[in-house]
Amino acid sequence: MALEQIIFWSLILVAGFSAIMVVVSRSPITSALYLILNLFCLGGFYLTLNAQFIAIVHIIVYAGAIMVLFLFVIMLLNLGDESKLRERIDWKTYISISISVAFFVELYYILMIQTPIPVTKLHVNSAEVGTVEYLGKVLYTQFIFPFELTSILLIAAIIGAIILAKKKFTI
C-alpha cells in the first residue's frame, strides 16, 4: 500500500506546484507549459482512481489538443514579450488572495468537518467501470443523447471560431 501512498502524495506535490506556477509565472508560455505538467499529473490521479480510459483521453484531448491550441495562439499573437504585460501587485491582489483562501477554508470545513464520508476504499467495480468497453457501452446507450448533442456543440464552436478568427472581414 505504501506505493499507492507515495504515488498519491508525489502527484499532489507536483500537481499543486505546477498549478501554483501556472498562476505565478510571468510568461504565458511558462504558464502554459506548467499547465501541461499539471494536466499530466491529473491523468496520473485518474489512473490511481482506476479510470484508465478517461486518463488517456484526458492526456490526448487536454495536453495534446487544447494546450497545443493555447501555445499556438500565444505564439501567433507573439505574447512572449513579458514587458508588454507587466502585472502589478496591489491591494486588489491581496483581497483576491484572501477571498480565495476563504473559499478554500470553507470547502475544507465542508469536506473534512461537516461531511464525514465513510467511504475510504475504491468501489470494487471501479476497475471494471473505468475500461473503454464499459464506458463505451454506457455512452452509446444511456448517454446517447448527450453524446449526439456534443456533436452539435462542436459544430457550433467550429463555425464560431472560424467567423471570429478568420482574417478577412469579407471574402
Binding site: L49, N50, A51, F53, I54, V57, H58, V61, Y62, A65, I66, L69, F70, V119, K121, L122, H123, V124, N125, S126, V129, G130, Y134, L135, V138, L139, F143, P146, T150, L153, L154, A156, A157, I158, G160, A161
Partner: peptide
C-alpha cells in the same frame, strides 16, 4: 465515480472535456 463504482461521473468528465475543447476554440 471511482468510489461509487458508477460510470456516470466518468461520462460527465468526457462531456466536460468536449465542452472545454469547444470553449477553448
Amino acid at each position: 465515480s471511482a468510489y461509487l463504482g458508477d460510470a456516470t461521473g466518468q461520462i460527465v468528465v468526457f462531456f466536460v472535456m468536449t465542452v472545454a475543447a469547444a470553449e477553448a476554440a
